[in-house]
């Protein structure tokens, strides 16, 4: 790595630990607004809740997008004993839910439990419930109602070169975008968009891109890291930022992909490719906006995505930061 990068990881800690399941991203937007207000020309929130921060310039309209929301659960039913039943908000990994702690927006905590003596058949149906430590429905209702959302908790830990936390997907993207925003010196008209509801179908990005009509869009998100003991060769931690080639929602134009790779090579930024057949990101709806928007994707590999205990590395974060900064210095021209 060349240059001295001083990323403020205490900001990443604040961002990851805040509460923001899909559709309830206000707390995150507040944090980002507070942090960025001295560095920008204009801040607005649109109808869906996207936070759009603009650095005005005379050049191209460039949209940088990172989603603020995280996966969570939504309460569907409260029983007589005060147990809460729920559905997933976004692609939760159900197998990892048992005994996890959850947190509601009012800081009411609970534990995910299930019946001890359940037949195998019942287990597959995922009969989990949330126990918030009350004795009756009445007591439960003082804290939680149907429709309230909770997130999986997961402390922020810096483990040497690695970081473990909940919601690295995608507060890490917000963090990188914020750090780039803070240091941006260019002449282009840059819109940093912190989008809502990505985990439930990339909804915020769709309306934001429609309003902005960018000449170029760069989406920053996280991606699956495949380097668990038995699986190797594909995207893995410590191999640098992943440049998006394909996911279920986009096939990145070869022109954009090659522009990104060239910039990475020129600046000695370690990178790998992101090619996944499942999962979409904000890049999907953004590149299909109106007559089409040239769109690229930057992703940081993360292990155990959507689990509440996500792992990433500082090397990959730094290479993503550097790539996004360099891309903005040499924006793609069609």
């Amino acid at each position: 790595m060349s240059g001295n990068i001083n990323l403020d990881f205490s900001l990443l800690k604040k961002l990851t630990q805040a509460y923001g399941p899909s559709g309830n991203e206000k707390e995150i937007a507040g944090l980002i607004m507070g942090y960025s207000k001295n560095h920008v020309d204009n801040v607005e929130t649109d109808i869906l809740g996207n936070l759009i921060i603009r650095k005005k310039g005379r050049g191209k309209r460039i949209m940088i997008a990172a989603h603020m929301d995280e996966v969570g659960v939504i309460v569907t039913h409260i029983d007589n004993n005060g147990y809460l039943y729920f559905s997933a908000v976004g692609g939760l990994n159900e197998a990892g839910l048992l005994a996890r702690r959850v947190m509601f927006s009012n800081r009411c905590y609970g534990v995910i439990g299930r019946e001890r003596k359940e037949s195998e058949e019942e287990k597959s149906k995922g009969k989990y419930f949330i126990d918030i430590g009350v004795n009756s429905e009445e007591e439960a209702r003082k804290m939680v109602r149907e429709g309230d959302m909770a997130i999986l908790t997961g402390e922020f830990v810096e483990n040497g070169s690695h970081i473990i936390s909940k919601a690295i997907d995608n507060r890490l993207g917000c963090f990188i975008a914020l750090e780039v925003l803070k240091n941006y010196q260019g002449e282009d008209d840059v819109f940093f968009v912190f989008t809502v509801q990505e985990e439930v179908g990339a909804r915020g990005a769709k309306t934001a891109a429609f309003a902005i009509e960018p000449d170029l869009a760069l989406i920053i998100d996280t991606t699956i890291s495949y380097d668990t003991p038995k699986e190797k060769y594909r995207t893995s931690l410590n191999n640098g930022v992943a440049i998006k080639v394909m996911d279920r929602s986009i096939i990145v134009s070869p022109v954009i992909k090659n522009w990104m790779i060239d910039i990475a090579v020129k600046n000695n930024i370690v990178f790998q490719s992101e090619i996944i057949s499942a999962g979409g990101t904000d890049s999907g709806p953004v590149h299909l906006t109106k007559g089409g928007v040239p769109t690229g994707g930057i992703a940081v590999p993360v292990r155990y995505l959507h689990s509440g205990s996500e792992i990433t590395t500082k090397l990959d974060i730094e290479s993503a930061y550097r790539l996004l900064s360099e891309l903005l210095k040499n924006p793609f021209a069609s």
């Binding site: 929602s249 906006t289 109106k290 007559g291 089409g292």
Partner: peptide, 16 residues
């Protein structure tokens, strides 16, 4: 373009 992966080219082409 890109019909087989989600009718994408027709989507933006018609708008144009």
């Amino acid at each position: 373009v890109q019909e087989e992966v989600g009718l994408r080219g027709a989507f933006t082409g018609t708008d144009r």
